[in-house]
Amino acid sequence: MRTSLAAEISRVRGGKLVELCAEPFSTADAFTAYCTDARTSEAIAPEPGVAYVAPPRLRA
């Protein structure tokens, strides 16, 4: 998920489904997911002006 506010950097968060439950990515997982070429698995440069962050904590 990408969130942007005017004149600020974009924040990118991610997650995955594990046994039908959503599990958030860590900051490192989000960076790896968005900075890896899906076809070749090679690292690609991060987008300028983007912060790869962990999602906010949600209450159960």
Rank of each mutant, 00 (worst) to 15 (best):
M1W: 09
M1S: 11
M1P: 03
R2L: 09
R2A: 12
T3I: 14
T3P: 00
T3H: 03
S4P: 01
S4K: 11
S4T: 04
S4E: 11
L5D: 04
A6R: 15
A6F: 04
A7V: 06
A7T: 15
A7Y: 11
A7I: 09
E8C: 14
E8I: 01
I9V: 13
I9L: 14
I9D: 13
I9M: 11
I9F: 11
I9G: 02
S10H: 00
S10N: 07
S10E: 05
R11W: 02
R11A: 06
R11S: 06
V12L: 14
V12S: 00
R13H: 09
R13F: 02
R13C: 11
R13Y: 03
G14V: 00
G15N: 04
G15H: 03
K16Q: 13
K16C: 05
L17R: 04
L17P: 00
V18F: 13
E19L: 11
E19R: 08
E19Y: 04
E19N: 15
E19Q: 11
L20G: 02
C21T: 13
C21I: 09
A22C: 04
A22Q: 04
E23F: 01
P24D: 02
P24M: 05
P24T: 02
P24G: 05
P24R: 03
F25K: 02
F25Q: 05
F25A: 05
S26H: 07
T27V: 06
T27D: 12
T27A: 15
T27G: 12
A28I: 06
A28W: 03
A28V: 14
D29C: 05
A30M: 02
A30R: 00
A30Y: 00
A30N: 01
A30W: 00
T32I: 11
T32K: 15
T32M: 10
T32S: 14
T32V: 09
T32Y: 08
T32W: 04
A33R: 03
Y34P: 00
Y34I: 01
Y34H: 12
Y34L: 14
Y34D: 08
Y34A: 15
C35A: 11
D37N: 15
D37G: 02
D37T: 12
A38I: 12
A38Q: 08
A38W: 03
R39D: 13
R39A: 09
R39Y: 10
T40S: 15
T40M: 08
S41W: 00
S41K: 14
S41M: 10
E42T: 12
E42Y: 03
E42M: 05
A43C: 04
I44A: 14
P46N: 07
P46V: 08
P46E: 13
E47V: 09
E47T: 08
P48T: 07
P48Q: 06
P48V: 13
P48K: 09
G49F: 00
V50P: 00
V50W: 01
A51S: 15
A51V: 14
A51N: 15
A51R: 11
Y52K: 09
Y52H: 06
Y52P: 06
A54Q: 09
P55I: 10
P55L: 09
P56W: 01
P56Y: 01
R57T: 10
R57M: 05
R57L: 06
L58F: 13
L58S: 07
L58D: 07
L58T: 04
R59T: 12
R59S: 13
A60L: 12
A60E: 07
A60Q: 12
A60R: 10
A60F: 10
A60G: 09
